[in-house]
Amino acid sequence: MSQPLYLEVYEKLREAIHAGTYGVGDRMPAEAELTKQLGVSAITLKRAMDLLRADGYITRRPRLGTVVVSETATNAVSTGSGPTPLVGCVLTDFDDTFGTRVLAGLLDASSTVANLVVKRSLGNREAEDDMVRALVADGVQGLVLEPSSSQYVAPAVLELITQSFPVTILDRVFDGVPVSSVCSDNVSAGRQAADVLFASGYDHVGLVSAASNVSTVQDRLDGVVAAHATRHVPFDPAHQFRQVRSTVPGSGVSPDDDIAELEKFLATNPGLTGLVATEYNIAVLLREAAQRAGRTVPGDLGIVCFDHPDAFYDKARYRFTHIRQDESRMGHEAVDLVLAQIRGAGQVRKVTLPTELVQGSSTR
């Protein structure tokens, strides 16, 4: 297999330094000029220049630009004794229901082996693309990304992937895209959530999710459908509501608006007895909608959700039966995957993590 283009550019520039084309003390040509000379993209050149800088050949000086400081490598990054790598991270959002523990895992895993720069997109595609480009421009050597969508890949991310830039996708899966990722086994988890409802006597099970295009939601629905298939019971498409909007990052929709819509959904489906909610906050909205519709939880309606805030000190908090993801490990794995790529030893890997069912008060 041929080596990545950025490594070819790195070797050409390194040989030019060795040959004295760019001598010690010389200023390197501007990046726009180098990209034109070498016929490569700005991202490819930047990666090559980052390697030269990490190896000690060049440095960036105020008002002068990039200057050659050595004709031989002085840092030996490839042996692991070089500078601590800088890793960028773009998250959609995070809170105590999901994400805070992922962030803790990212920070813990990188504390001694990498410097982590974290940004939050709030699900805005344009902001996500701009953040990725800004991080690369600022010199990150790898990227951890929680995309706003699984159906749309930001142009900046596609460009990085085609240039073999170290990228790890977090909590999502891009089918058909050669990029490393780490997420929970959402199909098995969706099936497990539906199974516990069926086992508790809720014969007609559906799903409620946010109005978002991410692979996790579709995988959880696939798991619910699989649980029906195991029992030779057809899944009724009318038993899914996928338009909760107030929980989507950056949405201006009020929770009361969603509760009203969920109340209508329950009224339209009086035979529905069990629901899988793809998020904790959706389960909270759903429980309120059930109460307004005169249905009790867990008596008339069973609810199983994904994720749950910790409540070590609040013993009075209502606890839903839920699927617990290993968020901390998710963060650790993401850092490990991107660092392996930075070191040149990482192949494309898709890591799938197991989940755990936690019994609560929302099922019999």
Rank of each mutant, 00 (worst) to 15 (best):
F265W: 01
V167M: 02
R364E: 04
C89E: 04
S184M: 07
A229T: 07
R61E: 15
D50Q: 15
Y313K: 03
L45F: 08
D175K: 04
T321M: 07
G250D: 08
L221T: 13
A311K: 14
V40C: 15
V77A: 11
L106F: 10
E15C: 10
N213E: 11
T112N: 14
V284C: 12
I17L: 14
E146F: 09
E263D: 08
G331K: 02
D108P: 06
P155F: 01
T296W: 03
M49Y: 04
M49V: 14
L91D: 02
I169N: 00
G82N: 11
L45W: 10
L275F: 06
T363Q: 04
Q359L: 07
R101E: 14
I17V: 11
S180T: 00
S328E: 12
N115I: 14
S180I: 00
A199I: 02
V9T: 03
Q359E: 09
G206H: 02
N186P: 01
L145C: 06
R27Y: 09
Q141Y: 04
A19R: 15
R27F: 10
E288N: 12
G20Q: 03
F235T: 03
T100R: 11
S150F: 00
L135M: 04
L13C: 04
P4V: 12
R292C: 03
L34C: 08
L5V: 12
A226Y: 01
R120P: 06
A194T: 05
A260R: 15
S121G: 04
T162A: 13
R60P: 04
A334N: 00
F165Y: 13
G139P: 15
Q359W: 03
R324P: 02
L158I: 10
G20S: 11
P255C: 05
V182Y: 00
A238D: 07
Q192D: 14
E71A: 15
S81W: 15
V214L: 01
E261Q: 14
T216E: 02
R317Q: 11
L221C: 13
R133P: 05
L103R: 08
G88W: 00
A193T: 01
I259V: 13
A211V: 02
F198V: 05
M28W: 03
E15G: 13
V233I: 08
Q37N: 06
A16G: 09
R101C: 07
H332Y: 13
G82M: 11
V217Y: 08
R220I: 09
L103H: 06
V225S: 01
E279C: 07
L275V: 12
D222Q: 01
D138T: 10
G223T: 01
Q359Y: 06
D236S: 06
G201T: 05
A316L: 07
R287H: 10
R287T: 13
G252L: 06
S254N: 07
G201E: 04
K315N: 07
Y152N: 13
L45K: 11
I259Q: 01
K46S: 15
A226C: 06
V136C: 15
L116Y: 01
L160F: 02
Q141N: 14
D256W: 09
V68F: 05
G201R: 10
Y152I: 15
D219M: 01
S164M: 08
D257Q: 14
D55H: 11
